[in-house]
Amino acid sequence: MVDDFLIARNPDDQSRLPYLLRLPLGRDGVVLKARETWPRTSKVYCHPAAGWPADAEVVERVPVRSCVRRGAAIDLVLDRGRENRSQIVFTRIRGGREAIFWQTARTSKQARPNVSVPRARASGIADLSILVDVHERYAWRFADQQASTEPRALPVGDYAVELDGHVVAAVERKSLQDLVSSLLSGKLGYALGELAAVPHAAVVVEERYSKVFGLTWARPAVVADGLAECAARWPNVPIHFCDNRSMAQEWAFRFLGAALRQAEQEEGGRTRLASLPTGVTLPPAEPTTAQVRAWAQSLGYDVSDRGRLRPQIWAAWHEAHDRDSASGS
């Protein structure tokens, strides 16, 4: 029985996994094919090998302090100063296929970041008042943030802030399963359309984007395309993926605080403009896309019902209104 951890070159030149690993576990050991010799920057994909070749070309041999199986993983501790602790994880991926990944504490941090969220104010607001929809199940409490919550029947979103009695920002919370289900059923599009009517809105997902490509009950490519189409159709309502529930809550807290501060600044700007001295005139405000679209449609121009307008339409609007201004009409 060999008590060392062995790494050899894979004699199969056609294999995409150029190395063999031999773990000193059991009488015959565990032999795996691997892509790398150590998981330095990311998890290393492995695959079971037929066995350890008699004439193996060993490239590395390291004494082992401990090699123990714990459930669906093998903990491996090597007898050296650096790159000594790792884990072989047996799991299932897309389509229910079995898979093996070789990881370290450093590479697995990407899934569960070992960080603590700051307790600082959001955009300088001492106690951010967040409205929570009464229909929200297992709602965020914002216990670690400088915020208070108030249950309210919200017309849109799960969490919101208001200014002068009007909702100025809203956040829709989604789990990955809820996001994909609503996307495939078409409900997500209606929700994004409603959120787009709010000055500041976003959807936050309690999961990493990479998890989309590990779905087994929905085609990852279809989901990815659907999310991309949503981003293109409603660019003012981003879908933001976070690592977990805690990170999603923190992101929503910061977003709502920043949106409220922006709304206050915009309202202050309008107040200052409204109080200009007598005799001071300003040029007319630039029309919105909706106003120009309605004007163009009334004159029979070929314009779409949504999205950007062609530069020719804007040019025609300016030409018509400049002409009206010059004639005094």
Rank of each mutant, 00 (worst) to 15 (best):
E83N: 13
N84I: 02
N84Q: 09
N84D: 13
R85Y: 08
R85P: 01
R85I: 05
R85Q: 13
I88V: 14
F90Y: 09
T91M: 02
R92L: 08
R92D: 06
R92V: 10
R92M: 05
R94V: 01
R94Y: 00
G95C: 00
G95K: 01
G95H: 02
R97Q: 09
R97V: 04
R97P: 03
E98N: 07
F101Q: 10
W102H: 07
Q103M: 12
T104I: 04
T104W: 03
T104R: 00
A105Q: 12
A105H: 09
R106P: 04
R106E: 15
R106S: 13
T107Y: 05
S108K: 05
S108G: 00
K109Q: 15
Q110H: 04
Q110R: 07
Q110G: 02
Q110P: 00
S116G: 07
V117D: 05
V117E: 12
A122K: 07
S123G: 04
S123Q: 11
G124L: 11
G124H: 09
L128Y: 09
I130D: 07
L131N: 00
V132M: 08
D133A: 10
V134F: 06
V134R: 15
V134K: 14
V134C: 13
E136A: 12
E136K: 11
R137L: 14
R137H: 15
Y138D: 15
Y138Q: 15
A139R: 15
A139P: 09
W140H: 12
W140I: 01
R141G: 15
R141E: 15
F142K: 02
F142C: 09
D144N: 10
D144F: 09
Q146A: 14
T149I: 13
E150L: 09
E150Y: 09
E150N: 04
P151I: 13
R152S: 06
R152Q: 11
